[in-house]
């Protein structure tokens, strides 16, 4: 039986390069390289898209059609939650939507999904946190802080924890979903006999990478918009 086991299960983040900066031990990990690859892919897509849209025709070609459909979908998603404010946030929401979507789908390319690293998702969660609080202070001034004491001052600690838990919960949700997918795929490729590596992983990839990844992208953007919308009036 030992001959048939393909290799050891492997779903950890690996160090590619070790260097020192300002006396700190820093590592270039597989996450960083995955993010570079995804950034390059998104950049190429963006350049191609802007070229296509500059000479856009009344009768759209295939690529122009896909671009218009994607933009309309993003616009509709933002307008559904944010309503009249959606014009101000659709750029940011669209950017993180594309980034998280490509990160989640990168498991199909054989990369370890960068969003399965808490360093990445926590930063995305902190972006949400800062945008939400900036909008809260900008739109509600002092009421942003006094609303923590509503309905009674006794509830202040619970309200405060509720506010602070938001970035943690959305980042942990994205991270844990992707991590569970990465672990399942790593275990399957590592533990199963080689014969079972043909065909069956495709079904697992459909669920763990495509389905779960798309849902979590949607949920992350949706929740970011819901939190922002709470602070708008």
């Amino acid at each position: 039986m030992g001959m048939l086991i393909s290799n050891e299960p492997d779903f950890m983040i690996h160090d590619v390069l070790h260097y020192q900066l300002f006396g700190q031990d820093l590592y270039l990990t597989t996450t960083t390289i995955g993010m570079w690859i995804i950034t390059i892919i998104i950049l190429l897509l963006a350049i191609l898209a802007s070229r296509t849209m500059k000479k856009a025709s009344d009768v759209p070609g295939v690529f122009q059609n896909v671009l218009e459909y994607a933009y309309e979908m993003l616009d509709k998603m933002a307008a559904g939650i944010l309503g009249g404010y959606s014009k101000r946030f659709v750029n940011y929401i669209g950017t993180i939507f594309l980034f998280i979507l490509f990160c989640n789908l990168s498991g199909l390319l054989g990369l370890r999904a960068p969003t399965a690293d808490f360093g990445v998702t926590f930063l995305l969660g902190m972006f949400t946190f800062f945008i939400v609080n900036y909008q809260g202070i900008k739109n509600r001034k002092v009421r942003h802080f006094t609303s923590l004491f509503e309905p009674t001052p006794i509830l202040f600690p619970i309200n405060l924890i509720g506010e602070l838990a938001n970035p943690l919960s959305i980042s942990l949700r994205l991270f844990a979903n992707l991590l569970s997918g990465v672990i399942i795929m790593g275990l399957w490729y590592g533990m199963m006999p080689i014969l079972l590596d043909i065909g069956i992983p495709a079904a697992l990839h459909i669920y763990c990478d495509v389905f779960s990844g798309c849902i979590q992208t949607y949920v992350f953007c949706m929740l970011t918009m819901v939190y922002i919308n709470d602070k708008m009036e």
């Binding site: 950890m12 949700r173 991270f175 844990a176 991590l179 569970s180 979590q216 949920v219 929740l223």
Partner: peptide
């Protein structure tokens, strides 16, 4: 879309359990 959003939020507590399990294991 409302159902999926609610389900994803409800999933969070289970994922906290998963994170605790993974921290304990690795």
């Amino acid at each position: 879309s409302t159902m999926l959003l609610g389900q994803a939020v409800a999933e969070t507590t289970g994922l906290y359990g998963l994170v605790v399990a993974i921290i304990l294991m690795f």
